[in-house]
Computed example of a mutant assay.
Amino acid sequence: MFTGFTDETVDFMWGIRFNNERGWFEAHKQTYLTQFYQPMCALADELYDFLAHQRPNLGLIRKVTRIYRDARRLHGRGPYKDHLWFCVEQPAEQWTAHPTFWFELGPDGWSYGLGYYMARPLTMAKLRARMDRDPKPMERLTRDLERQTEFTLETEDYKRPRSAPSRPALAPWYQAKSFSITHQDKLTDELFGRDIVAHLQQGFAFLLPYYDYFVTLDGDPDPRET
């Protein structure tokens, strides 16, 4: 059971940011395991159980990142991350294919939400085609998003929209190359106890109707063939 992150968690994150080399990490590896990685796994397990209970037929899985960067993609950076995250999603051959619930903790703060990491162009084309066919469900979801203050829509946009929106309120979705519905915060006190569990459960519960909408896009017809 998750009992909270600690001051040692924060100290380690800042430490690895400014001492990103093997010697320092090996000297502090036990702190990484007990104060960072293992608590993150415990938190991931609780949120996975919550979401799997809400959607038992989706075959959800949970993943927790490790601290080691891919040696092929260092690009001048050190070999370790200074942040960790977990995600809950449906399994897929291409891991960017499905929408993902996620939580991330770094030395500067934490964030969580729902979205895609580099959504496939076909996924976004199917989203636009679905909104063209029946705009009302996404209009309702967009209104609900605008009425609350926990999450914001963050998009990576095309330089030029691929098509005109069926309704003005839906314009941000038509412009998006990829997107996430995100909450970002500083290192709040709730991280250091169980309050963060209830916070994330409440937020993910709000996001479930969005997940239900996006996760079914794969089953839509290919708009390039119509």
Rank of each mutant, 00 (worst) to 15 (best):
E225M: 12
T100F: 01
K81A: 07
M131G: 02
G78N: 04
N20G: 05
P172W: 01
T9P: 03
F206N: 02
R224K: 09
Y32I: 06
P91F: 04
E146G: 12
D195L: 09
D218W: 15
G106L: 09
F101G: 00
K159T: 13
K29F: 08
G203W: 02
P99T: 06
H75R: 10
Y211N: 01
A97G: 08
T149V: 07
D220K: 13
D218L: 11
Q38P: 11
L187P: 03
R194P: 09
E139F: 05
F36N: 10
V197M: 07
Q175C: 06
I181V: 09
A42D: 11
R194C: 10
L217C: 05
Q90S: 10
L105V: 06
P91T: 10
V88T: 06
M1N: 15
W173K: 00
V88H: 06
K63D: 15
A119M: 07
T155S: 10
G59V: 15
K29M: 06
R167Q: 07
T152K: 10
R73P: 03
P172Q: 08
T9E: 01
Y80T: 06
D157H: 03
S178E: 08
D49V: 11
I67A: 09
I181W: 00
T100D: 04
A71P: 14
F18T: 14
P79L: 05
F101A: 02
R22V: 05
L114K: 02
P99I: 04
R17N: 09
I196S: 02
Y112V: 01
Q90V: 10
F12Y: 05
L51A: 02
A129H: 02
P107F: 11
A52M: 05
A129E: 03
R140E: 13
W102S: 07
D212R: 01
L60S: 04
L127V: 03
P39C: 05
R194A: 13
D222W: 05
Q90G: 05
R73Q: 14
Q175V: 03
R120K: 14
T3I: 13
M124Y: 00
F2W: 06
A27L: 11
G113L: 06
F2S: 09
F192T: 14
C87M: 14
T31I: 10
D82K: 04
W95I: 15
D45A: 12
E150D: 13
G113Y: 01
Q201V: 02
I67Y: 07
W95P: 12
Q35N: 08
L43C: 06
H83R: 11
Y213A: 03
R133I: 13
V215D: 11
R22A: 07
T34A: 08
Y117K: 11
D185Y: 06
K81I: 02
H53T: 15
Q94N: 15
I181N: 01
Q35W: 01
Y174C: 00
L33A: 13
P165A: 00
T149G: 04
L33E: 12
E150V: 09
Y174D: 00
W110V: 01
H53G: 12
